[in-house]
């Protein structure tokens, strides 16, 4: 059992918190890293996974095909107003921000770049945590800028769970380092350990310790 601090929980049972969604941010080196993480999930994975991978604005659907081939779950590009479903990987389209609405649907915008990025990890994380609150897991993978560090701060503040790729195993270490510097994270893990850890977290929940 993993231990995570929590002030409030609407979905705890017998002192165990259930997670309802995973958000993942990745940049340089991320395509390979995402493949490794997603390959750990079986087709009955009970929660949705929302992904921001920085890409060139005019890139095609290569990333979707690539991830789908490595993952038992449905992998698709996120559509605006789409209702979020369990067992599905939603990937932000190139040149659009991906946002989670509090009614658990998805929005896309062409708002200005955040951290020079559109899609931006911060935008996904910050909106997702307003929707899922403490039942959200945020994962920061390899990347060469600081996108995601504001997002993990809000996830921390609202009681969610944060996993960061060990910078030593990251192709580009700036993004995981920025996240670790921004806030106390729950786990720093080697790339290969992240997928299995998420499976365990989702299946068993996390032990609540009151503070």
């Amino acid at each position: 059992m993993h231990v995570c601090p929590l002030r409030q929980s609407m979905n705890k049972k017998n002192g165990v918190k259930k997670f309802k969604a995973v958000v993942v941010g990745a940049s340089a080196g991320g395509i390979k890293a995402l493949g490794t993480v997603l390959s750990a999930f079986s087709a009955d994975f009970p929660v949705p996974i929302l992904v921001v991978q920085h890409l060139h604005p005019n890139s095609d659907s290569y990333l979707i095909h690539m991830l789908a081939s490595q993952c038992a779950l449905t992998v698709k590009q996120a559509d605006e107003k789409e209702a979020i479903e369990a067992g599905t990987v939603y990937v932000a389209p190139p040149n659009y921000h991906l946002l989670v609405e509090e009614d658990f649907t998805l929005s896309l915008t062409v708002d200005p770049r955040v951290n020079f990025s559109r899609p931006s990890v911060d935008v996904l994380f910050e909106t997702a945590v307003y929707a899922y609150r403490e039942a959200l897991i945020g994962v920061v993978l390899t990347g060469a800028n600081g996108d995601g560090s504001q997002g993990v701060k809000l996830i921390r503040k609202l009681g969610g769970y944060i996993v960061v790729q060990d910078p030593a195993t990251a192709e580009a270490e700036a993004m995981p380092r920025a996240a670790i510097a921004a806030v106390r994270v729950d786990r720093i893990l080697a790339l290969e350990q992240i997928g299995p850890h998420l499976v365990q977290l989702i299946n068993r929940g996390c032990q609540i310790t009151d503070i």
């Binding site: 915008t109 910050e126 307003y130």
Partner: peptide, 9 residues
């Protein structure tokens, strides 16, 4: 308007 973007702004 979709709320999440408005709220961020």
């Amino acid at each position: 308007y979709a709320k999440a973007s408005i709220k961020r702004r």
